[in-house]
Design a binder for these strands. Structure first.
Length: 213
DNA sequence: GCGACAG
DNA sequence: ATCTTGTCGC
């Protein structure tokens, strides 16, 4: 299957692959957890991706990989994965230590067609994954108490597609959702575990550093 | 028809 | 995402 070029084709891919998403807990015990960060250079013509693998218990860096590719898809809300996934897959292939779980920047099922980048990566890699968005794409929710660990369900068309979670007092909450093979409840627990001190999970923070300097 | 809109 | 230094607040 060649990479989609139009919104129409991309939509077809999402509608076809979304049926493969497993929203229940179907995984083996996690030993390592990976975080992904994607950035752009040269006016956005170059996409750079970084994947950082951490020990799930100590949250210490175990391995990492980087990749740079020509950007091949524009940023269109609802189609983020078609812009970032190719570079992420290249970086993932370079890893010496494959992770047991992937925490992705962006939404999982908290998406217009329930197939955000976390679902896309999870399905293509057949790896448990979780979507960790810094802002909302779709859905309605009630204000989240300003307490670490507090969260509110995210509703969209009668369904709960994710959760709005406060990982740190005094900061904006994160938008958590299932990527693949991880339930929402488990996803929230995992994010809390990976973000013991700062707003963002250590996995994401590590990947961000590696992709910068 | 008018806004909203992951990174 | 990216362009960019200092600055206000806990």
């Amino acid at each position: 299957m060649q990479w989609p070029t139009t919104i129409e084709d991309a939509t077809a891919v999402q509608l076809q692959l979304r049926d493969r998403v497993i929203r229940d807990d179907q995984f083996e015990p996690f030993r390592t957890v990976a975080g992904v960060d994607v950035g752009f250079e040269q006016e956005g013509t170059i996409t750079r991706a970084a994947v950082a693998v951490l020990d799930g218990q100590t949250l210490q860096l175990i391995d990492y990989a980087l990749a740079r590719q020509p950007t091949r898809f524009p940023y269109v809300p609802g189609y983020l994965s078609f812009r970032e996934v190719p570079a992420v897959l290249e970086a993932y292939d370079k890893l010496r230590a494959k992770p047991d779980l992937l925490l992705c920047d962006g939404q999982g099922t908290a998406h217009p067609r329930q197939f955000g980048i976390a679902c896309h990566l999870g399905v293509l890699l057949d790896l448990p994954s979780v979507g960790v968005g810094k802002s909302r794409l779709v859905g309605r929710y009630q204000e989240v108490p300003d307490e670490r660990g507090a969260w509110q369900p995210l509703y969209y068309q009668r369904d709960i597609i994710g959760g709005v979670l406060r990982t740190r007092v005094g900061t904006k909450p994160l938008f958590i959702s299932t990527g693949h093979r991880v339930s929402l409840e488990t996803a929230i627990r995992l994010v809390m575990h990976c973000a013991p001190k700062y707003r963002l999970p250590e996995t994401t923070r590590q990947a961000h550093k590696l992709a910068s300097g």
